[in-house]
C-alpha cells in the first residue's frame, strides 16, 4: 500500500489487467448486485403482474404488508417449522458425520481399501439430485422397493399393513439418511486434507508417551482440524434457512407436503408457480437477512468462545 503513494504512469498493461478484472464487475453487477436492488419488490404490491420490471417501477409501495401476509400464512408456518427443525437435526447428525468419517478413514492402513471406499462414497456427490432422488423414490416404493420387505422381515410392518415410506412421517428420516449417503464422502475430503497436513512429530511424541489411537484422535487430530471444523460449522449455521432446494423438490409429493415443504421450495412455488412475485421476494429477503444475521452472530460467538472465526 505505502509504495503506491507514488502513482506510476498508466501503461497498456494496467489497462489490460483492468479490463480482465472488470469482467467480474460486469457479471456481478448484472447477476448479483442488480438482484439485490430487486428486493425492493418485497415492499411493493406487485403480485401477479405480467410485467415484472413494471411491477418494480410502477406498482404502489405497500410497506411491510407482504411480510405481514406471510407471517400470518399457515403454509409459511409449516415451511419455517420444517426448515428450522430439520436443520437443527442435520446440524447434530449430518454436520459431524463427515468429521467422524474422516477420522475413521484416517485409521485405515491399507491404501487400497481406503481408496476404494473413498472412490465409492465420493461418487454420489457428482450425481444430480434428480437422479439420486429417482433412486430413492424407486427404493422406497411400497410394492417394488427394497425397504418394505426389509421392514416386514424385521417386524416393523407387514404385508397386510404396509407402511408408506414416501409418506409424511418418514420424510425427515429419508432426507437425513439420503443426505448422509450423498454427502458424507465428499464432505470428509476437506477434513482428510486437513488431517494429512498435521505435524507427524506430534503423533510420534504421543506414541512415546503411550497414547493409544483413540487418545491420539481426541487430543491431536481433533484439535488440529478444529479451525477447519469452525469454518464449516459457521457456514452451515448461516445456511440454515437455505436447504438444498433440489433434494426437497425431487422427494416432495402431495402426501408428504406437510413435512417436506421448506422455505426454499415454498419461495419457488409462491413466486414462480403462483406468480406472487412480491410475496415471494419478501420471503426471499427474510431468508437472506436471517442468514446474514445467523452468520454474524455465530461468528461473534465463535470468536468469543474459541478465538476463531471466518472474519
Amino acid at each position: 500500500m505505502d509504495s503506491k503513494k507514488i502513482r506510476k504512469k498508466w501503461t497498456s498493461r494496467d489497462v489490460t489487467l483492468l479490463v480482465m478484472a472488470g469482467l467480474s464487475v460486469v457479471f456481478l453487477l448484472i447477476f448479483a448486485y442488480a438482484p439485490m436492488f430487486g428486493v425492493l419488490l418485497a415492499f411493493k404490491d406487485g403480485d401477479y403482474k405480467l410485467n415484472l420490471l413494471g411491477a418494480i417501477t410502477d406498482a404502489p409501495w405497500c410497506g411491510f404488508d407482504n411480510f405481514k401476509a406471510f407471517l400470518l400464512d399457515p403454509n409459511f408456518a409449516d415451511a419455517i417449522v420444517n426448515t428450522i427443525c430439520l436443520n437443527l437435526i442435520m446440524l447434530v447428525i449430518n454436520f459431524p458425520a463427515p468429521i467422524l468419517f474422516a477420522l475413521l478413514i484416517n485409521e485405515v492402513r491399507s491404501a487400497r481399501y481406503k481408496k476404494t471406499v473413498q472412490t465409492i462414497t465420493n461418487f454420489p456427490h457428482f450425481i444430480s439430485w434428480v437422479i439420486f432422488g429417482g433412486l430413492v423414490i424407486a427404493l422406497t416404493d411400497m410394492s417394488t422397493g427394497i425397504f418394505n420387505p426389509i421392514m416386514n422381515a424385521l417386524g416393523l410392518s407387514s404385508e397386510e399393513n404396509p407402511v408408506n415410506l414416501q409418506g409424511a412421517e418418514y420424510f425427515w428420516a429419508t432426507v437425513i439418511i439420503t443426505s448422509l449417503i450423498k454427502g458424507v464422502g465428499w464432505g470428509s475430503i476437506v477434513y482428510i486434507a486437513a488431517i494429512s497436513g498435521l505435524d507427524a512429530d506430534m503423533y510420534e511424541a504421543a506414541e512415546l508417551d503411550g497414547a493409544n489411537r483413540l487418545q491420539k484422535a481426541i487430543y491431536i487430530t481433533l484439535p488440529g482440524i478444529a479451525p477447519t471444523i469452525t469454518v464449516f460449522l459457521l457456514l452451515s449455521i448461516s445456511g440454515m434457512l437455505s436447504n438444498s432446494f433440489d433434494q426437497f423438490y425431487i422427494l416432495q409429493n402431495s402426501l408428504n407436503l406437510s413435512r417436506s415443504e421448506v422455505l426454499t421450495t415454498y419461495i419457488y412455488k409462491t413466486g414462480l408457480s403462483q406468480r406472487r412475485y412480491s410475496y415471494a421476494s419478501a420471503l426471499g429477503l427474510f431468508n437472506s437477512v436471517v442468514s446474514v444475521v445467523l452468520l454474524i452472530l455465530s461468528n461473534f460467538i465463535s470468536k468469543r468462545a474459541t478465538g476463531r472465526g471466518i472474519f
Binding site: 439485490m36 419488490l41 415484472l52 419461495i267 421476494s281 429477503l285 437472506s288
Partner: peptide, 17 residues
C-alpha cells in the same frame, strides 16, 4: 456477493428483463 444475494424472484426479474 458471497454473503449477500437478492434471492430467487429478483434474479428471475433480471433474467426476464
Amino acid at each position: 456477493t458471497m454473503f449477500f444475494g437478492g434471492g430467487l424472484i429478483p434474479y428471475f426479474l433480471i433474467i426476464v428483463s
